[in-house]
Amino acid sequence: MNGLHDLGGMHGFGPVVTPDGEEVFRERWERRIAGILNLVAFAGVCGSDQFRRAAEAMTPEAYLTTPYFGRWLHMVETMLMENGVAGFEELAAGHRSPDNPPWDGPVLAPAEVWPAYRSAGSPRRETTLPPRFAVGDVVLVRNRNPQGHTRLPRYARGKSGVVTRMHGCFVYPDTNAHGMGEQPQHLYNVRFTAHELWGEQARDAVHLDMWDSYLE
């Protein structure tokens, strides 16, 4: 969707502020939600594509004013409710309702956390589909504006680039985020010149990954 999350190329956010000695977390609740989100994913409630869709569905005002880990909190709440794991009343009350059944899926024991993290799988999938493009091919990105989740930034739509790398076949986020299946397809790294994207004469370039369906 054409949401506020799709920030590439926007103006007006000011300089990048880079404090020294930055810690990963500032507050306790940030630590807790980071651990919880990962455990919810490892339990199989949902994956990254669904979490990202939940963040993108925030109103633009909420997206702008909610801190980073606050967006993670929103993602977890949304996915727990959407997948029927926890109801609004339970999250509001802060306790499990006796009407709602206990979790019967996988649970990570403390000693399993590090091994599970280290062996986390990739969304790479086997395929017999031949790739449509090869390294060096000039490709044109489709101009599409889906209401749903996509990983195709607005700034690359309708633009032309050159395939620089074949990644293999990967789960397609645009369907997977909506529970419409993994529908894996080839993923290419495509180089866009700054001139093509922004009209600039600089020799610079932006590289983006493109699923087959993103290309004409």
Partner: peptide, 25 residues
Amino acid sequence: LRVRAIETVLTEKGLIDPVSVDAFI
């Protein structure tokens, strides 16, 4: 408060173990 609510609900459901949350942190 919202994070504490989630952690309590999920612990009561048996979906997470708070010690596993510590381990992930």
